[in-house]
Amino acid sequence: MQLVAENLACDRGGRRVFAGVSLKVASGTALAVTGANGVGKSSLLRQLAGLVPVAEGVIRLEGGDDERPPFEHCHYFGHQDALKPSLSVAENLAFWQAFTASAPGLKAGAPARGVDEALEFIGLAHAATLPAAYLSAGQRRRLSLARLLVVERPVWLLDEPAAALDASSEGRLCELMSAHLEAGGLILAATHQPLRLANTATLHLQAAQ
């Protein structure tokens, strides 16, 4: 499986944010998208997620389900946690598990985890029945990340995934990401720090002069 974008351009509010961005990410590899603030890292990820219209260029997923657009193969993990404070931790996660359609593309040995297992893995099993309102910022972030574990989708689009995470949670995140790559997934991450992963390429976005 390979995610290909050719000659992407992005307009926001009548201003061209970037143009001529091409990228290619294959199964088992990660791409770190770097660049200064405001250069369009988030916009690029949101374009790939189908949330921002593509001004020019094409996005295609080779080896995916051709019936469905590429973004339906993607998990998007952005700045917002998509959690409802009045629902319990488990209810939040179970909703996204039941609601999100899974997409094939990972190796057979990497099944989606159940809610309990995912909560155990991110260290929130003790809080499963508590309202999400009582979680700290880092805990909310981790709960939001658990969404990627309970629904199988091959492409992970991560926008500043390490934001608000402490060192041990960040280590856990790295573990998750390498496991996902090993299972044949692919990752695009907008980040300031280098990704500590094998098979990582870097796409550096630079403002046009």
């Binding site: 997620a49 949330l51 469905r68 339906e72 917002q80 946690d81 998509a82 999100t100 359609a101 997409a103």
Partner: peptide, 13 residues
């Protein structure tokens, strides 16, 4: 406001 709408739009439903 909390980003749920984005996920709903790309949920495949």
């Amino acid at each position: 406001d909390d980003g749920s709408l984005d996920l709903m739009l790309m949920s495949g439903r």
